[in-house]
Amino acid sequence: MSATPGRIAFATVVAFLGIAPFLPMAGMKQYMLHVVIQIFIWTFIGQAWSLMGRFGLVSLGHGAFLGIGAYATTLLWNFYGLTPWIGSLVAVALAVVMAFLVAYPCSRFGIIGHYFALTTLAVGEVVRLLIIAERDWTGGSLGVTLKAAGDASFIALQYADKQVWYYVGLVLWLAGLWVWARLDRSMARAAMEAIGEDETAAASVGIRVTRFKLWLTVLSAALTALGGVAYAQYITYVNPETLSGIGVSLRIVFAVVLGGMYSLLGPTVGTALTIALSEWLRIVFGVKFIGMAETIYGLLLVIFIIFLPAGIYGSLADLVRRRRRPAAAPATA
């Protein structure tokens, strides 16, 4: 058995799983635990995004699905006392409807590439503006705090204990890896790659272009909404800036592009790095340079798209692959 990047990634995950359950018990500091939980949840969201992104369906509006997820469960709980266990189903359903409303016309009228990206960007902004406008429910730009549950922790899905969230995050992260790997080995991947290359050609060999794109968009939106639910339940506070709109949408994209969207661990590596970066900036500069992280992200994003389109992790994996196969025919692209 040779050490292909895929096997290395798989072995890394398995090795990590061996120690992961015990990490919080080893007296991990609350702060570290908080950072790791964030990494888990945002990686899950990044994985959801990359399901589309890697096939050329670049969405700059995933904040919309995130916001729908976070706000739907929060408001349903605050106003109707509906448990997030059911609220999250409503949230996912809403995100699916929304994804369908965006993806179907885009696919039918051939809105692809940059135009698709711009359309989703607008959708993300519309959702953010709606949240701000509906201030009576949503608290407008001030956001809204999840009503405390008292001792009904399980029903309210509220846990003060960070260890619980650590395990929730771990499960989400693994679920994200699983979906990613499943898709990677499916026929849908081949179909989506063909569609990403040339839709007309894909249709001419009998691939149902609209159907595949819809299916993928809906799946990605549903998982993103779920990520939004998890994040809102963990932080117990939602606001339009952190959970919808351009800022967060770009942050998701950036983390994935940084790590690499074509490899299993790409979103994980990218998310870990961006979260580490923003925590570091916060500690070093405090609140003096609010928006500093966004500026750095923006710059790095441009640099990466130009020089390392496969991302940090993806490029390393490529390097390993090339070392392993020095005798292979040179790529003649």
Partner: peptide, 13 residues
């Protein structure tokens, strides 16, 4: 089967 105008291959595959 259709061999479309301009060939329309998947160039990166």
């Amino acid at each position: 089967a259709h061999v479309p105008e301009g060939r329309r291959l998947f160039p990166a595959l």
